[in-house]
Design a protein around this nucleic acid. Structure first.
Lengths: 203, 203
DNA sequence: TAAAGTTTTAAACGGTGTTTTAAACGGTCT
DNA sequence: AGACCGTTTAAAACACCGTTTAAAACTTTA
């Protein structure tokens, strides 16, 4: 019992690390077994297949990382404050796990047709409450009337994409790992300003 | 001679399509051969290896798609007009080849350490002329003083990322392919406005 | 037209990745 | 004690994969 929970977890952890690091396709089950220090066949015993294992890991990752974000979007915070919080929390989250973006995107590319995974990721997407809020504030004249989807895509793009091209940015600017961190930190202030500026009603 | 150029091209084209569609790792050389309608061994005859074939295709794609963009950045156009043009041309380009973003990003993730490919992609990145222009205009007080890298990353993010999450956007909003096209078209106006707004000197 | 060069073919090689099988292990219960 | 259970092991089966080979089929050239 205790032993089994242990090896199952060991497999899970090793696989998670490897999948994030090298991508699903480029990590073999032998590698996972080696890293977890377990017998090859146990991977099949606990998870039925590599694909299945991947599925478990994927939904765990998405759920773990999207909960707080959704809570922010669903709260009744003032809009601009909400944007500031969302951006800040999201960037912190990705800073702690910078490989997440590339990973999710590779999954998106991998299973463009399979809707199953799409649904899972959607939870990381906008919420009705946030959409309504933008429409309402627009009607009230507090902000420029804007398509909520556009705003959300702007926000997501500005937050996530830099992590996906991290190595490019580092290479181009001769950044150290640390300097990239500062670059990202700067964006925590910059992105909300940029978004809010674009929402302010025209003078 | 004529025949050889033909099969070489057939291999190249088939592989290009498959690599973009399914990613390099998930397409086998047998698949390429089948799609090209040629014998398996010819892939090794013309290109020495799969990796080599991939290299050729990759640099072709990058070169083909970055030329015009670099020309715009390097021109002596007025800054805001330059941004408008760059965004417009880039979005048009990606609209024609929507898989390009995911592909490049998967490569970035694939070879995070190998600098070779990084250098190639860097060509698609900012240019000195553009950087200088932003610094100059900042000094002159024509625009807000801003880190050029931040601006460029903003621009790239807003342009490219939506294509990477295309299926997510479609799924979430119940878009048709066509509606997604309109959504992107809207961004051609929106992104330059957003960027330019953020650059205008404070009142 | 025969020799030389180029292109194409079918088959096979060595390797790796995934899954299955059957036996062994170590507790627990009767 | 022996039978039983979930767990673990080692081995092998199976399916591909990228690459190589050696010979056949063609072009070209002389």
């Amino acid at each position: 019992m205790s032993k089994s929970k242990n090896t199952e977890q060991k497999i899970f952890d090793a696989a998670t690390e490897l999948f994030l690091e090298k991508g699903v396709d480029r990590t073999s089950v032998r590698e996972i077994a080696a890293k977890a220090g377990i017998n090859l066949a146990l991977m099949n015993y606990y998870f039925r297949s590599k694909e299945n294992l991947f599925g478990s890991i994927f939904s765990m990752l998405v759920q773990k990382n999207s909960e707080e974000l959704i809570r922010i979007l669903d709260s009744d915070m003032e809009l601009f404050e909400k944007i500031r919080q969302y951006v800040g929390v999201y960037i912190d989250m990705l800073s702690e796990n910078p490989l997440l973006v590339s990973f999710v995107m590779s999954i998106l590319h991998r299973s463009r047709e399979r809707i199953t995974e799409m649904k899972v990721i959607s939870s990381l997407y906008s919420t009705d409450q946030f959409t309504r809020q933008i429409l309402d504030e627009g009607k009230k004249g507090n902000i420029r009337r804007t398509d909520p989807t556009q705003i959300f895509v702007d926000m997501l793009s500005l937050i996530a994409f830099p992590f996906a091209i991290k190595m490019l940015v580092i290479d181009k600017n001769n950044f150290t790992e640390e300097e990239f961190g500062e670059f990202i930190l700067e964006r925590k202030k910059r992105i909300p300003e940029l978004l809010i500026e674009s929402l302010r009603p025209p003078r």
